[in-house]
């Protein structure tokens, strides 16, 4: 445990040796872990298929961007905006949840998908008649996070180590991740967590057991959304520029892939899924081209295309050989075992 902690603390400096890119990639990976853990509450714990999850991420990002940029000339500190972003995202979550409570399965999926698109279209079009979001041109020069005199935009030296902007963000993100994992672990085995599981497995039975399914489902949407809201705020701060094109449907699909590929319902599996899908495409970026040069002496196929093809095949193959995900939750494992014993 201590070793893991030490390794995680030393990691960014090791990575910075290989190139600051890897620190940035790691930061984005942590953002995606935060998102996946949030979506895991909705899909994994409560069993509600959500295809518009990225909308909450967008809400968080825009809350941050609007309240900490020259766009409106407002520059609030991050410790006010991030919780506010989480709150607003949670409200949107409840807003989405309320009309969809009666829907099940794929009908719910399509409504959430529509909701995600609606949010994006509004962000894209609220540049006129009144300029709220600056439309597709996005919001630039978003403030970096600063704590007192410590600005995350600068490089500072401390104890002989260079703390560059990305490394500072890494530590902040790591702290958030630890908090989120802790919350998730507590949630899973709490009253609420068990209620979610009951709703997921059999809604009617759950209601018969006295669970207020309406409230419990809304809570799942709101909780999941709030994680995305925080992640979105961090995204805006790290990037310094956001525009609606960062919040398209493909991103929702990507987060869902992370959750399912890793192992729906299992926190560690979900983290694994998010890490893999964040790092593998980047690794391929570095390896495909030299390998091709080595084997064929020239470029036969563009590396980007190979990267996407490998990604596609990976999704198909992992699903055929480990349909419960790479690291399935205990419940799923039991289910799978039960199904294979009972050949239909």
């Amino acid at each position: 445990m201590v070793l893991v902690a030490l390794a995680l603390l030393a990691l960014p400096f090791a990575l910075a040796g290989a190139g600051t890119t890897w620190v940035r990639v790691t930061n984005l990976a942590i953002l995606f872990i935060l998102l996946s853990l949030g979506l895991n509450i909705v899909v994994g714990f409560a069993g509600l298929l959500d295809l518009g999850y990225i909308a909450f991420y967008a809400v968080g990002a825009y809350v941050y961007a609007l309240l900490a940029s020259p766009h409106f000339g407002i520059h609030w500190p991050f410790w006010v905006i991030l919780p506010l972003g989480a709150l607003v995202a949670a409200l949107f979550g409840a807003l989405l949840g309320a009309p969809t409570l009666k829907l099940r399965g794929d009908y719910l999926a399509i409504v959430t998908l529509g909701f995600g698109e609606i949010v994006r279209i509004f962000l894209n079009n609220l540049g006129s008649p009144v300029n709220i979001t600056n439309g597709p041109r996005g919001i630039a020069r978003i403030d970096a996070i600063r704590i007192g005199e410590l600005s995350f935009a600068r490089t500072d030296s401390f104890l002989g180590l260079d703390f560059s902007g990305p490394i500072k963000y890494y530590f902040l993100l790591l702290a958030m991740l630890v908090a989120v994992i802790f919350i998730n672990l507590r949630l899973q085995n709490s009253r609420i967590g068990r209620a979610w599981e009951a709703v997921r497995e059999d809604e009617i039975a759950a209601r018969a057991m006295g669970i207020d399914t309406t409230r419990i489902k809304l809570l799942a949407f709101a909780m999941g959304a709030s994680f995305a809201g925080v992640a979105g705020g961090m995204f805006a701060a790290i990037q310094g520029f956001i525009s609606p094109e960062s919040f398209v449907l493909v991103e929702s699909v990507m987060v869902l892939s992370m959750v399912v590929l890793g192992g729906m319902g299992n926190i560690w599996g979900v983290i694994l899924g998010a890490l893999l899908l964040s790092f593998v495409p980047e690794l391929l970026r570095y390896t495909v081209q030299p390998l091709q040069q080595y084997f064929f002496g020239r470029m036969l196929i563009d590396p980007e295309v190979i990267r996407m093809l490998i990604f596609g095949f990976a999704l198909v193959l992992v699903m055929s050989f480990r349909p419960g995900g790479l690291w399935p939750s205990a419940v799923r494992k039991r289910e799978l075992a039960a199904r294979s014993e009972d050949p239909a």
């Binding site: 290989a18 190139g19 600051t20 890119t21 940035r24 990639v25 984005l28 990305p166 995204f235 990037q239 520029f241 956001i242 525009s243 094109e245 960062s246 980047e282 970026r285 590396p303 980007e304």
Partner: peptide, 21 residues
């Protein structure tokens, strides 16, 4: 030559990669 997939977040990652190189 790098691919940013017309995605802002890939854009910054790739920018950093070039700086590292």
């Amino acid at each position: 030559a790098e691919d940013d997939q017309a995605d802002p977040k890939v854009g910054t990652t790739v920018a950093q990669k070039l700086i590292d190189a």
